[in-house]
């Protein structure tokens, strides 16, 4: 495993420890998808896939793919026993209606107020928001899982400059450098990755943040 992969694995393992037994969870495409591979012992969650089902299971064995069973990124997946399928209106009623406990998403920028920008870079990249705006507004808890910087440029900023996905909805930010909570009075560093100093986190962060007195070492 190279250094970047190790860093990404630390992030997804740490996010996985946020999930509680019985949670209904929606994972974004990309890095967040990998959280499913690292659920703590004894924790069983229900994964929701916004294209229309709960009971999202792992990728099928090669040759066992079902063209009608894909995740929201069109990758072949499985539906576990007990899973259920529904239309897009029901899927987003689950999301907006407060029936999804946790969503884990990536970000282009996230700021000290919990604003999230994740869906477009004007003039450069306009993929569309897909389900991200509804998920961010609707899920009870919003966790951003991302690399701390984009090739050295801070992604945690004082105020998002890119168009927002949602305003003031992010609850927790997990990166390879540490874990930050978004509280009413701003960002709080609550855990720090092994071998990283608070000064290093400050240097890689473009937003003010507080440090809790009992700062813990981030466990994978």
């Amino acid at each position: 495993m190279d250094a970047r992969e190790q860093m990404r694995e630390l992030i997804v393992r740490r996010v996985a420890r946020e999930l509680k037994d019985g949670d209904v969870v929606n994972l974004g495409i990309g890095l967040p998808t990998k959280v499913a591979n690292h659920l703590p012992e004894g924790v069983e969650v229900i994964f929701q896939s916004e294209n229309g089902f709960v009971g999202l299971g792992p990728a099928p064995e090669p040759g066992e793919e079902d063209p009608d069973v894909v995740n929201a990124g069109a990758q072949p997946v499985t539906i576990l026993p007990g899973g259920a399928c529904f239309c897009s209106a029901t899927s987003f009623a689950l999301i907006r209606g407060g029936h999804v406990d946790v969503t884990v998403l990536g970000a282009l920028e996230v700021d000290q107020y919990g604003n999230l920008a994740s869906w477009m870079i004007p003039g450069k990249l306009v993929p569309g928001m897909g389900g991200a705006m509804d998920l961010t507004v609707g899920a009870k808890r919003v966790i951003v899982a991302m690399e701390h910087t984009n090739k050295g440029r801070p992604k945690i900023v004082a105020e998002c400059q890119l168009p927002l996905t949602a305003a003031r909805e992010v609850d927790l930010i997990v990166t390879e450098m540490g874990v930050m909570e978004v509280r009413p009075d701003g960002l709080w560093l609550v855990e720090i990755a092994p071998g990283i100093t608070v000064d290093e986190v400050r240097a890689a962060t473009a937003a003010p943040f507080n440090v809790v007195d009992d700062l813990k070492v981030m466990q994978a």
Partner: peptide, 15 residues
């Protein structure tokens, strides 16, 4: 012309 709509909003607009 591309009009982008949040997915859950689009579903409810059609509904």
């Amino acid at each position: 012309k591309v009009t982008l709509v949040p997915q859950g909003t689009l579903a409810e607009q059609v509904r």
